[in-house]
Design a protein around this nucleic acid. Structure first.
Lengths: 125, 125
DNA sequence: TCATTTTGACTACAAGTGTAATCTCAGATC
DNA sequence: GATCTGAGATTACACTTGTAGTCAAAATGA
């Protein structure tokens, strides 16, 4: 699986926002959240291309970049990996621990209930 | 916050199993799960001490190592960090995504229900 | 007592990462 | 056409990480 460093992930975030995108657009988007020099972002883009997390098409002199991996795909895989390493693959302990110090919203609760319902429906065949 | 690399985390796991522990014990414990050379483990221990994730007391020529951070503390902080970066701080989307491809156990469901009940009791003041 | 073993300390070294600066060349500008 | 500019390519450099090897000193065994 493709592994992204933190900085690389930030660049992917900018790209996931909309693509294909020119490097100037990506730099523009990132300028809101970071102080990165544009050279830094170019370097990161290059590394992402090398890792095949990003592809590009030449439009004359410019490149149009696109992600080759989906955000949901990536984040979920990484999450599962963490849950595996930290909680032996079980998600409930994470939720319990999380809820102890973080406030859940009504929406969170609704979503959790939906997950439970889904599971129970499936159990009842 | 103290950041641990993957290899360092493995060493912490061995130490969390029981402490204080001599390096020989830690090496012994890790021999079940890894092929690491004992020198490698010594190096990692040294780095952990430098990072102040581990402390030691000299017992003559030997050291007795102990973790200075708790496993739950560390794993929860890292989890929250990931949830923040990947899911804007909300845990429900992670649970939904997780449940789509991973099988939940009855125990998981019970724990999730407990979290919900806890939350609802609190809402009702 | 002298060699051997063992432990922690120090050193090594390539790959990955954060954070750019320099080089090169095609297109825009005068 | 000569020059400037901005894009991508290449190079840089310190720090971290994985994965040990070497060194010095103490304990141990013969």
């Amino acid at each position: 699986m493709i592994e992204l460093s933190k900085a690389e992930f930030e660049v992917m975030e900018a790209l996931w926002q909309g693509h294909p995108a020119k490097s100037s657009e990506i730099i523009e988007r990132l300028s809101d959240d970071t102080q990165w020099h544009d050279k830094t972002i170019k370097t990161l883009l290059g590394r992402l291309v090398k890792k095949q997390a990003v592809s590009f098409e030449k439009q004359g002199r410019l490149y149009q970049y696109s992600p080759t991996i989906g955000r949901d795909d990536y984040t979920l895989k990484q999450s599962k990996n963490l849950i595996q390493r930290f909680f032996s693959g079980r998600i409930a302990p994470l939720v319990s621990g999380f809820a102890k110090t973080e406030q859940l919203s009504q929406q969170d609760i609704n979503e959790l209930k939906a997950v439970i319902k889904e599971w129970e429906d499936q159990q009842g065949k």
